[in-house]
Write a protein that binds this DNA or RNA. Structure first.
Lengths: 209, 209
DNA sequence: AATACAAGTAAACGGTCGTTTACCTACGGA
DNA sequence: TCCGTAGGTAAACGACCGTTTACTTGTATT
């Protein structure tokens, strides 16, 4: 049954997210599932293979998600036309959805924690962590905001500074939510921050195309 | 010589910050210093003792630092009078100094990374991490801003929202600086953010006591 | 009914883990 | 000069590591 393979992956992810990759033993994963560690090697060729499968799945999920939302999926250079008609509403909508995703989704929240614990181990992990969760989103928002300023949706400002101002509360509150069970208060705080941002930087008039 | 004891502590801290506590072996620490692991037990009673010594030292350093700066050291409830005359300048000054501290100071930057890697292991580590680096500073700034609004230094606003808006860029940029060697650009970005914050929320007029 | 195979067990492999032990200096104070 | 001790070595301890092996099932296909 391929069901066991799935259980191994999720169990390992949960453990990796709490203890870190090295601190989790193969026996630990197996014991959590009530099987022996030998059985585990029928599904994955080694411990690293489990980790790699997790990362690979995250890539798949992420690609799928960015397709579902009407926001640009690629860098500005590759498809600048996709940045032309991004609305404030879709930004806000996508951001709140991403917050729930990174804090509450069983896979994504644990993946984020796991990556947090592996970020200093080598350059590959550092890059992955920063692209997904730290500086990656900042560059992304910078491109969007630059276009929004050009289109007159936002007031004149430094797009990079706007990007930091917009994304920083997201990043902080995601990490705040790790501590407490009640993630709702952080989400409401984020909503306030976004509304304040919009109110502060949105151009006063609407411009038709 | 107590010099070896100090070298063990710093070497262990550097390794803990990169690999995580569990992933670092006692042999690894000893090898880095060119001694055998047996010698290590002449200075610390076990591996956990090294970790605890690191945490204890951080407490000492932190207490010493907050004394050097003219900013409140304790919670608002315990000494509210210390919050009465906090100026914008001292806030800005302290914040920039804290940024350099957490990103460049050999002990503090590695301690922060180590704590980042241990935060999910148990409640004690989680609390320590959040008190030092995540939600702790937010509560702290909230108290300061509430008093500043009361004193007319800042415009009327929700102090908690202000605290998030102020601290979030700090937290994000500290983490950004982990990836790149050039920490200067992030520091300048932080300076811009703070100046923008001041300009946006400072009360237009000065009020004398 | 015979066969092939997927999925599990138990045990063993060589290695490393954190820690302890026994032994070896070098040296400062009585 | 003798002794205690601080700081080091090398080796061993039992436990656990990731991985492999040999063997046992249940089940599906021929």
């Amino acid at each position: 049954m391929t069901d066991t393979k799935e259980k191994i992956l999720m169990t390992a992810l949960h453990l990796f997210a709490r203890e870190g990759y090295e601190a989790v033993s193969v026996s630990m994963i197996a014991a959590e599932l009530g099987i022996t560690k030998g059985a585990l090697y029928k599904h994955y060729k080694n411990k690293r293979d489990i980790f790699d499968s997790i990362v690979e799945r995250m890539y798949r999920i992420d690609a799928q998600r960015s397709q579902e939302y009407e926001v640009p999926q690629e860098k500005y250079e590759t498809r600048p036309e996709s940045y032309e008609s991004v609305s404030m509403d879709s930004i806000q909508n996508y951001t709140m959805s991403q917050f729930i995703f990174w804090t509450e989704d069983d896979f994504a929240s644990h993946f984020r924690k796991m990556l947090t614990l592996e970020q200093y181990r080598n350059a590959e992990m550092a890059e992955l962590y920063h692209n997904c969760i730290v500086s990656g989103p900042v560059w992304y928002m910078e491109d969007i905001f630059r276009e929004m300023i050009k289109n007159g949706v936002l007031k004149e400002a430094d797009p990079k500074q706007l990007a930091v101002e917009f994304y920083a509360p997201f990043y902080l509150l995601v990490n705040c939510s790790d501590l407490s069970k009640d993630k709702g208060q952080w989400m409401e705080l984020l909503r306030s921050q976004i509304e304040c941002f919009m109110q502060c930087h949105a151009a006063g008039h609407l411009r038709k195309d």
